Amino acid sequence: MATARTTIASTRWERLKQDIRAAAGGLGIDQIGFASAEPFTELKHVLLRHREQGYESGFEEPDLDKRVDPALSLAEPQSIIAIAIAYPSKLHNPPKSEPGAYRGIISRSSWGDDYHAVLRDRLSRLEAFIRERVPEARIESMVDTGALVDRAVAERAGIGWSGKNCSIISPEWGSWIYLGEMITNIPFPPDTPITDQCGSCTKCIDACPTGALVGPGELNSSRCISFVTQTKGFVEDELKLKMGNRLYGCDTCQVVCPVNKGKNWTHQPELQPDPERVKPLLPPLLTLTNKQFKAQYGSMAASWRGRKPIQRNAIFALGTFKDRSAVPHLAERLQQDERPEIRGAAAWALGRIGGAEASDAVEEALLTEQHPQVREELDHAQAALQAQ
């Protein structure tokens, strides 16, 4: 009798699973997978080694047990549903970056509306679909601000394999996907993980601007350009130049991935980019007030760290481009900005650009600047200008 009841229950959950899979597209979900809710035991060893080597970004959930054990997010979990939503990789008619009108670039993961909100919306739709059929279901949904490691869940659920670039790579969608998951007490039959298909390819590792990909699937976050663009402090000279014109994020390891070739997804309306917003002119960014920044970028994921990192990165880009037309803007930041990181960035950029006007601005700032790190940047800039 017990066996019969178990069989009936298994059939019910398998049928619901297939119903969910059939409904996923209508719910705005591009790919869906099901996994067991067992702890990610092996992952904890990886995360611990990552921490010991100093490879963490500091943005992660600090409690490693919460990152690997679904039961610490939902009592007595039975399974996890993983979802993926595809986002675009190409700009239609992108504005040109040229002398006197240089532009920065925001990474593809932040081109449309904040993906956290989009994922939460899709998970809410899925949760409503399930509760309509199983009112007693217990569900805990999360996006990348949640405790679990999204990539580990997605890999176990068969969304894709974990690539050497630390992204989940879906055979259909590539790695241009956002990931989310929900833990539930419903015992869905699990899907089969996808076998690693990277093979001997190392294009992502070879192309990483800073060598942050220290091995297949192993990232030193402190050297990852995507992480550096989101920090708020001073940046070492080597990384400033490696950043190029990146204002937020870095797509290099995904752009070079052969699986991503030709993949560009335009069917999710909230995720489509405004070319002028994601590839903006650099000088106007320098004077944005908090209110103006929120109005222009507040709906994007790139806004979560505020305006300072993006303004600092815009200054680095102007210095990297050696844009002489930007010298008055940089001199103004050096003399008037209250934030030492911005003044320091302006000093570095002026030293890179060179010329009498840049030299005058640096000399004037040296007379009054008190912040030790800004003074250090000014000294380096002065030396560079004198060498020129």
Rank of each mutant, 00 (worst) to 15 (best):
T7R: 15
E14L: 15
L16S: 01
Q18H: 05
G25H: 00
D30E: 08
F34R: 03
A35Y: 10
S36Q: 13
V46F: 12
L48I: 14
E61K: 11
P62A: 09
E76F: 11
I80K: 06
I80M: 10
I83F: 01
K90T: 11
K96N: 04
I105V: 12
S110M: 05
G112Q: 01
I139V: 11
V153R: 06
R156A: 06
N165V: 06
I169E: 06
M182C: 03
I183T: 05
P187Q: 01
F188S: 02
P190C: 07
D191W: 00
K203M: 03
I205C: 10
T210A: 01
T210N: 06
P216R: 05
E218M: 15
R223Y: 12
I225T: 09
S226P: 02
E236R: 14
D237V: 13
L239K: 04
L241S: 15
K242R: 14
R246A: 00
Q254V: 07
V259F: 10
T266Q: 14
Q268E: 11
Q272M: 07
Q272F: 09
P273H: 05
V278R: 00
L286Y: 02
K294L: 13
Q296T: 12
S299D: 15
S299R: 13
G306Q: 04
R307F: 11
L318A: 06
R333C: 03
A346P: 06
A346Y: 05
W348S: 02
T368H: 10
A384H: 13
